[in-house]
């Protein structure tokens, strides 16, 4: 466990190095995730996520006004279980940002493997973002993540767990390509098996292929609830 935590911190250390010409954003990212089991095989997932900036520095070192609301996301997905531990789904997201509506269609496949002391999850997502006066943005994403109990071999009611995800987002827009890398280490608490809260960091690194890289650090506070 200690080795794992040390390795995670090491990765994070390299990840968080920010050069003076890099853009930097620091803020809050609360989210609520509600799942509804329609049938043994069908599920609905509703997600609300919001972002508030606390620090925003551009490539010239200029600091923009401090605390600022950025956006709200509302998404709904329909998922079908295709095996014991895997499911496919599709959904739609509406983002409200600077008074504008941005639309996104999402397709997803996920797979969870169970090991004795941890669970490993793979997720592949394709999405298309539609925005007024902008070419369609296509993204192909792969995320790998695990959770491990901080007490015992699995996190039971009233216990904590560590979750870490690492995601690679290939972004195509108007003939240009960008890669975004995300690393999300969080600590979760199991209220009930179907009711969990998480607190941690969402570190994102993008625009480093062309132009000034952007680092975003969001303090993540999440609630997962299944009905």
């Amino acid at each position: 466990m200690m080795r794992l935590a040390f390795a995670s911190m090491l990765i994070l250390f390299f990840f968080v190095r920010v050069n003076s010409q890099d853009r930097l954003r620091v803020g809050l990212m609360p989210h609520v995730n509600v799942n509804y089991k329609v049938h043994d095989y069908w599920r609905l997932n509703f997600k609300y996520e919001s972002r508030q900036l606390m620090r925003d520095r551009d490539a010239f070192g200029n600091e923009n006004p401090a605390f600022r609301y950025v956006l709200s996301d509302f998404s709904l997905m329909v998922l079908r279980k295709t095996g014991l531990n895997n499911q496919v789904g599709g959904g739609y997201l509406v983002r409200i940002e600077r008074g504008k509506f941005i639309h996104r269609a999402t397709q997803q496949f996920s797979l969870v493997r169970n090991y004795r002391t941890f669970r490993l999850a793979h997720r592949i997502v394709g999405d298309q973002t539609f925005e007024m006066d902008e070419p369609i943005q296509w993204r192909l994403r792969y995320r790998i993540g695990f959770d491990v109990a901080l007490q015992g071999e699995s996190a039971d009611r009233g216990e904590f767990y560590l979750k870490m995800t690492n995601e690679y987002l290939n972004v195509f827009r108007g003939g240009k390509y960008d890669l975004e890398i995300r690393l999300v280490p969080v600590v979760g608490y199991v209220v009930e098996d179907h009711n969990k809260v998480e607190f941690g960091l969402d570190a994102r690194y993008d625009s480093f292929i062309e132009g000034n890289a952007r680092h975003s650090y969001w303090l993540r506070l999440g609630w997962f609830f299944s009905i």
């Binding site: 995730n33 799942n35 997932n45 997600k47 014991l84 531990n85 499911q87 996920s110 969870v112 169970n114 669970r119 999850a121 997720r123 993540g145 695990f146 959770d147 699995s154 979750k163 979760g188 098996d193 179907h194 969990k196 998480e198 999440g222 997962f224 299944s226």
Partner: peptide
Amino acid sequence: ILRNTDHLIY
């Protein structure tokens, strides 16, 4: 009964 994995998927 499999444990809930929603927090790993979404």
